[in-house]
């Protein structure tokens, strides 16, 4: 019997010659990538005018698989790189996809300042509660009490609530989803891509290999099951009320959606004002 080889309809968005990817089976990153690709497909975004920028980490590898101009920068520096790219080439749609450690530990300073300036980029922050790439160390979002390779007795640090940070720093669009909410996530990415200014989506993602197995969720499905049983959608809630704690409900939804002039717009206005004749 002959089996007809059919191309996956999403192939055109991928660098097919780079597949298979490096991620573990059960990793949440495939769902994030899939949601992103469907969002750009449904928005019919010109791939030649889309740039994806990543930092370093398992999440940071996303840029390398997408068939657009894609930039895999240094650890923590995706946002300032994206800032320069967007300012120098405003016709590009610029998206940063990176991990919790990359964006909020080593790169935390850049995140808050890009949000404050309202740089016109979308940031998708994949929160898997740990540093996957380097073997499961604790990170700025590791919940209190969670076991990681550098918190072998349980985490004693208070974690960031990323959506609260984004809101406080001035982001115009803030949402949180888990990888269980694949369709809602895709719709949210579409909204964020259409938003003028600094938009941020936190995606809670399973990392069975380095996080789950040390925290009583050794199977990827355990984490998905947990999301199903414990996440509640609360659109419009003050993000400060959406902390993440072990074993407690995960509040998801769109928390912030406001309008504010962007840095690009301010620069263009300034240029008009001072331009030499």
């Amino acid at each position: 019997m002959e089996i007809e080889a059919r191309a996956n309809p999403m192939d055109k968005y991928l660098r097919a010659d780079r597949i298979p990817h490096i991620w573990c089976s059960g990793c949440g990153l495939g769902i994030v990538l899939n949601a992103f690709l469907h969002a750009i497909e449904e928005l019919n975004i010109d791939l030649d005018k889309l740039a994806v920028v990543s930092g370093i980490g398992c999440t940071g590898r996303i840029a390398g698989y997408i068939n657009t101009d894609s930039y895999h920068t240094t650890h923590g520096r995706a946002i300032p790189f994206a800032t320069g790219l967007k300012l120098a080439n405003p016709e590009m749609k610029v998206v940063v996809i990176s991990g919790d450690g990359d964006l909020f530990a080593i790169g935390g300073n850049h995140f808050i300042h890009a949000a404050r300036r309202n740089i016109d980029i979308t940031v998708i922050g994949v929160n898997n509660y740990n540093y996957g790439m380097t073997g499961g160390q604790l990170g700025p979002t590791t919940p209190l009490g969670a076991r990681t390779t550098t918190s072998p007795y349980g985490n004693i640090e208070h974690p960031f609530n990323l959506c609260h940070v984004a809101h406080a720093a001035g982001a115009v669009y803030v949402a949180r989803w888990t990888v269980l909410h694949a369709i809602r996530l895709k719709n949210s990415i579409k909204e964020a891509l259409n938003k003028r200014g600094f938009s941020f989506i936190e995606v809670i993602a399973a990392c069975p290999t380095t996080y789950g197995r040390r925290n009583k969720m050794p199977d990827a499905l355990d984490e998905m099951r947990f999301y199903r049983e414990h996440s509640v959608i609360k659109h419009g809630i003050d993000p400060s009320q959406a902390n993440i704690e072990i074993g407690k409900e995960i509040v998801v939804g769109k928390f912030v959606d406001i309008e504010k002039p962007t840095f690009n717009e301010a620069v263009e206005e300034l240029k008009k004002k001072v331009k030499k004749k």
Partner: peptide
């Protein structure tokens, strides 16, 4: 920018822009 690391990262981005 917020520091020199951000400054040179922005240069890289703008140069690729």
């Amino acid at each position: 920018m917020e520091d020199e690391i951000a400054s040179i990262a922005a240069l890289l981005g703008a140069s690729w822009g």
